[in-house]
Design a protein around this nucleic acid. Structure first.
Length: 679
DNA sequence: GTAGGGTTAG
């Protein structure tokens, strides 16, 4: 305690001049005389108004009081605190010091709303007056320290916690929540156990906080999560709609257990489902089954629940995942009707939504029309430019940002440089991250650098980055490196990187496929086949090529080979006609991309059955003359042959063809691609 | 006789 006191008092910033001056005068005798009936009723009247939020009136009444006691002061201070009026609350607290010695009511009220700087001063003052370990004051201090975004928030909170004579449920809940939100869920769990040793029973908040802090925790996190779910069932708290929402989030993030999420939602009595529960299940669905998220929205409306801006945000994400631009616009109309069009978060998600649907123009329009922007707005437009290969625009916007860039900004910018082959710019920005922007490069930034260098063919420099990075490279880094190996072919490096990728991500097929391809391209079909066999044995599957295109209000899916599509015969007939036309203007099939031991004409045939080509032919069969843009979405990266095909097709049919592959957008127009054939 | 503290799921 003495150490804590000495340490706090030695911090120069703690000694605020005004408060120090007040300190010498704070000792006022607490009046022993009973308050007059007038004073008593005036206090009640002020309290009534302050609680109702009539703070101005309450303050006027307070000012007019001929006599005030400590209740008058604490009633108004707590009124301001209750309504989050931080500045007024702190000011009144300072004024109070000239008249009364603050009590635990006043300390707790001011601490729960004041900023960090003032909070430290109040803490110092509480220490000097001996109130710092009073349970209400200490609880407010614990919470204050965790809430402040400072480096040693946890240290200060623990110090207060340890100095307390006794602790209650609120103390533990505040600590558990603080630990959880600062990513220290192990410590939160330990404290949860010691709480029970301390004889303090947990409540719904304790479990709710613990469950949500365990979401996304790696390794044994899911086992702890399951134990907590059992505890929720045992205590009957699993019936609580808030706990249920947290459990759904947990099953979705920790275990990707979509069915468990759905079961939890369905077993909730429909009259108990609130907007937050609906939002959570829609959020989960937007990732797993976006169409289902839209169905859920309609069900929610039937239950007479009014969507708020969180609901609309999820809806836009679901439409973006469905890559249905018209649906994004339709939701936006509803956003306007509901009066949420000025909500910053919704504009941010719209930028993302339009960009994901291939409409960079609409993403730009939303960004331009925003009256206010935050870091997420800037990051969203920068990411949009990155994925659409508009590096010049991204760099221009980056230079004119009016908020400090963060880690995401730098990832977006480096990824822009990578997509556009801007090696020099990328290296300069990466090297200046720490000094110029105060951001230490993390895994994502290193992955971008490996991509920038590797994609440009500087394999040894990329390898050097991997060897020299201060943390262990993860599967993303090795995938980026393998991607570069695929493009610039180095058999030894490919084998080495494949081994690394298999270690870190055994289910990732990339390593197996690439090594197999190297063998096949050297005509070593037996070895290549052996690797494919090995993949089957251990259950690693290569993601099959799929493409989607929207015709009318329906999304049509095409698998590589196309046999599943009911109109495949017609599509192949039209394909043949288009092929002959494209061959006349320079299309040459890249048959060396087909690595199977088959005859040349069969190789050509395999190329024509790639899903994006089938999607294009189908879209052309159904497109009207006014339909100037054809959009195709692909789950894996576009191959060189399809890229050539799309380029020439855009010239021949006189339409813009937008293809989104696993990595980026390609805008094909008049025989050229926005990626300048660099991808 | 009057005035409190925490968290909470999107």
């Amino acid at each position: 305690m003495i150490t804590a006191l000495t340490s706090l008092l030695t911090k120069p910033c703690l000694l605020h001049l005004t408060l120090s001056r007040q300190l010498s005068r704070y000792i006022h005798p607490i009046s022993a005389a009973p308050p007059s009936p007038d004073l008593y009723f005036s206090n009640h009247f002020i309290n009534m108004n302050a609680k109702r939020g009539q703070l101005e009136l309450a303050h006027q009444l307070f000012d007019k009081m001929p006599d005030k006691n400590i209740f008058s002061w604490t009633i108004l201070i707590s009124g301001y605190s209750h309504h989050g009026k931080s500045a007024q609350c702190s000011q009144l607290f300072s004024q109070m010091l000239s008249h009364h010695r603050p009590n635990d009511f006043a300390y707790a009220s001011v601490l729960s709303v004041c900023d960090h700087r003032h909070g430290l001063q109040v803490h110092t003052f509480a220490l000097k007056t001996g109130f710092d370990s009073w349970i209400y004051v200490a609880n407010a201090l614990v919470s204050m320290y965790w809430k402040k975004n400072i480096h040693d928030a946890g240290f200060e909170a623990w110090r207060v916690f340890h100095a307390m004579d006794s602790r209650n449920l609120i103390t533990y809940n505040s600590m558990i929540s603080g630990l959880g939100t600062h990513g220290q869920c192990d410590k939160a769990l330990t404290l949860f156990i010691s709480m029970q040793r301390d004889g303090i029973e947990f409540d719904r908040t304790t479990l709710l906080t613990l469950v949500s802090s365990l979401c996304g925790r790696p390794n044994d996190g899911f086992m702890c999560f399951l134990q907590l779910h059992c505890l929720c069932i045992k205590t009957g708290l699993s019936l609580d709609v808030g706990v249920k929402t947290a459990l759904i989030k947990g099953y979705s993030i920790s275990a990707k257990e979509f069915n468990a999420c759905r079961k939890l939602f369905l077993e909730t009595n429909s009259k108990d489902r609130d907007v937050i529960l609906w939002t959570e299940i829609m959020t989960v669905s937007a990732e797993w089954d976006p169409q289902q998220a839209l169905i859920l929205f309609n069900q929610m409306r039937k239950d007479d629940l009014r969507p708020d801006h969180y609901v609309f945000s999820v809806l836009i994400k679901a439409c973006a995942n469905l890559v249905m631009e018209q649906a994004v616009s339709a939701v936006y109309c509803r956003v306007i009707i509901a009066g949420f069009d000025n909500v910053l978060e919704l504009s941010n998600v719209l930028i993302h939504g339009y960009a994901r649907c291939g409409s960079i123009h609409n993403a730009e329009r939303v960004f331009d029309e925003m009256p206010k922007r935050d870091i997420v707005s800037w990051n969203s437009i920068l990411k949009a430019y990155a994925v659409h290969g508009k590096a010049e625009e991204a760099l221009g916007f980056f230079r004119r940002m009016d908020v400090a860039p963060d880690e995401t900004t730098l990832v977006a910018i480096l990824s822009s440089c990578s997509h556009a082959g801007m090696i020099k710019e990328g290296i300069t920005i990466f090297d200046s991250m720490e000094n110029k922007y105060g951001i230490l490069p993390k895994l994502d930034h290193y992955a971008c650098m490996v991509d920038i260098l590797g994609r440009a063919g500087h394999l040894s420099e990329a390898e050097k980055i991997i060897r020299q990075m201060p943390m262990e490279p993860d599967h993303v880094i090795w995938s980026a490196f393998l991607g570069a190996c695929r493009k610039h072919g180095d058999a030894n490096l490919t084998e080495f990187a494949s081994l690394k990728l298999k270690e870190l991500d055994p289910e990732n097929s990339l390593g197996y496929v690439l090594v197999s391809n190297i063998y096949c391209s050297n005509n070593s079909f037996n070895e290549g086949g052996f690797i494919r066999m090995k993949m089957n044995e251990i259950g690693v599957k290569k993601e099959p090529g799929l493409s989607w295109t929207e015709i009318g209000n329906r999304v049509h899916e095409f698998a590589s080979g196309g046999q599943r599509h009911p109109q495949i015969k017609e599509i192949l007939q039209n394909m043949e006609v288009l092929l002959q036309q494209l061959k006349k203007i320079g299309y040459v099939p890249e048959t060396n991309l087909v690595l199977f031991d088959v005859e040349e004409e069969h190789k050509e045939e395999q190329l024509y059955h790639h899903s994006e080509k089938l999607a294009l032919v189908f879209a052309l069969m159904n497109a009207s003359d006014s339909n100037r843009v054809i959009k195709i979405i692909k789950n894996i990266r576009i191959c060189l042959d399809c890229h050539n095909f799309m380029r020439l097709a855009s010239k021949f049919v006189g339409k813009v063809i937008v293809v989104r592959d696993a990595n980026r957008f390609h805008h094909f127009k008049e025989g050229e691609c926005s990626c300048n054939d660099y991808w």
